[in-house]
Design a protein around this nucleic acid. Sequence first.
DNA 1: CTCTCGATGTTCT
DNA 2: GAACATCGAGAGG
Length: 189
Amino acid sequence: MILLNRIFYNRPTLEVAHDLLGKKLVRRMDGVELSGIIVETEAYIGVQDSACHAHRGRTERNAVMFGPPGLAYVYFTYGMHYLLNLVTEEEGNPCAVLLRSIEPLSGLEEMQKRRKRGGKELTNGPAKLCQALNIDKSFNGWDVTEGDKLWVENHQPDRPLMVLSTPRIGIAYARKKDREALWRFLLKP
DNA sequence: CTCTCGATGTTCT
DNA sequence: GAACATCGAGAGG
């Protein structure tokens, strides 16, 4: 098991978003290990990115993005969903990668219990994977380079990794330039 | 399969 | 008071 370290996250956000594809996201809770392969990400790139929460400066909610790379930025939205990001770039530069979809690897039974549905619907969305892996606001600020309850590790790919990029999802509020930027990355099935 | 719409509560104006 | 980095149910094709 090779845990991704802070140096991995302390790089340009587009590189990190791309390189996280195919890596293994692991959530360990008492006795059970839930994991999946990251297959979809989005980059949110600092104060100049009008889609990024840090666009209007530091607030209580987005404070973690201003911290060191390798922290989890978890926030609550639409009154019911948690979304998981990993902070990138040097401390003080508020950037992060949103994890949008994983392909379940282990702990599927436990995931189904939390999700109340299975198959494709298990972890194929940013709020779905948080529900499946039992990730809530208590993980905001969590250091994923320590490898305790939540981390990302290298994984031997079982296929050649083909990466597609598209505009990001759900950011109609952003400026045209940022709306159209190809900052969403997916593994080709 | 696609599209529309309501849920629900925190954050920011 | 409005908006929200979403999801799932329900209607229609």
